[in-house]
Amino acid sequence: MEDGKEWPAAGVERKKLNGYELADFFLNIRQKHIRDNVTFLCIGTDRSTGDALGPLVGTKLVQLGFTNVVGTLKEPCDAVNLEARMTIIPQGQVIVAIDACLGTSGSVGFYLVSGEPLQPAQSVGGSLPAVGHYSVAAVVNVKGPKPYWTLQMTSLYKVMQMADEIADAVASAFGKE
């Protein structure tokens, strides 16, 4: 997902939020859905600094006591296994998809959120199925001519900081167990 020309897609309301505003996005979800009916789908790999955001968030959520989490550092949910990992999510669950993305320089460090599915791997030219009922795309770096290289060279500090903000916002909205 990227925040360039295609952002936002026609008819889809997406918002650009900072870390402080992120808790309100999750609180809105929490007010509509019971915690046990929400699954956090944390997309990415532990083999690329920029793309590790999803598994870092998933790991942090599990450490905070969340049980409905798919995608951690131990068991990533990435381009290779995304469709298979989706099959383990029980029918009727509300899915919040979380992934890293590339965007404009003014968007780095912000979150692109929506009440619509997330399109994984869009910013690197991939074609994976859209996933989730809600989506959070964390802009971890600037989109350039070599997106895989850019993700690989993304600041680990920035990615960890953003993963902490997402996990803290989820915990704030849904409560820690």
Rank of each mutant, 00 (worst) to 15 (best):
Thr49Trp: 01
Thr59Asp: 04
Ser48Met: 12
Ser105Asp: 09
Ile98Pro: 03
Gln119Gly: 01
Pro55Val: 13
Gly54His: 08
Val80His: 14
Ala52Lys: 08
Glu116Cys: 11
Ser105Val: 11
Gly71Leu: 11
Cys42Ala: 13
Tyr111Asp: 01
Ala100Val: 05
Arg85Trp: 01
Gln119Met: 03
Ala137Thr: 14
Gly71Trp: 08
Leu64Thr: 07
Leu102Lys: 02
Ala137Glu: 12
Gln122Asn: 05
Gly92Tyr: 07
Gly125Glu: 02
Gly71Thr: 13
Met86Pro: 06
Val80Asp: 15
Asn68Asp: 15
Val62Ala: 04
Leu64Pro: 01
Asn81Tyr: 11
Thr72Phe: 12
Leu73Cys: 13
Ser105Ala: 08
Asp99His: 03
Val80Trp: 10
Gly115Pro: 00
Ala97Gly: 04
Val136Thr: 10
Thr49Ile: 09
Pro55Gln: 10
Pro55Asn: 10
Leu73Trp: 14
Gly92Trp: 02
Ser123Lys: 00
Leu82Gly: 08
Ile95Cys: 00
Val96Lys: 01
Ala84His: 13
Ala100Pro: 04
Pro117Cys: 04
Gly125Trp: 06
Ser123Ala: 15
Gly44Arg: 05
Asp46Thr: 12
Leu64Cys: 00
Gln91Ala: 09
Ser48Tyr: 02
Gly58Met: 03
Leu61Asp: 00
Gly54Ser: 09
Val94Asn: 02
Val136Met: 07
Leu82Glu: 09
Leu73Ser: 12
Val70Gly: 05
Ala79Ser: 15
Thr67Tyr: 09
Gln122Gly: 11
Ser114Ala: 14
Gly125Phe: 05
Thr59Lys: 08
Leu61His: 10
Thr45Val: 12
Leu128Asn: 08
Leu128Asp: 10
Gly92Met: 05
Val96Met: 00
Leu53Tyr: 01
Ser107Met: 11
Pro120Gln: 00
Gly115Glu: 11
Ser107Lys: 04
Gly125Ala: 06
Thr59Cys: 02
Val108Ala: 08
Gln63Glu: 13
His133Tyr: 10
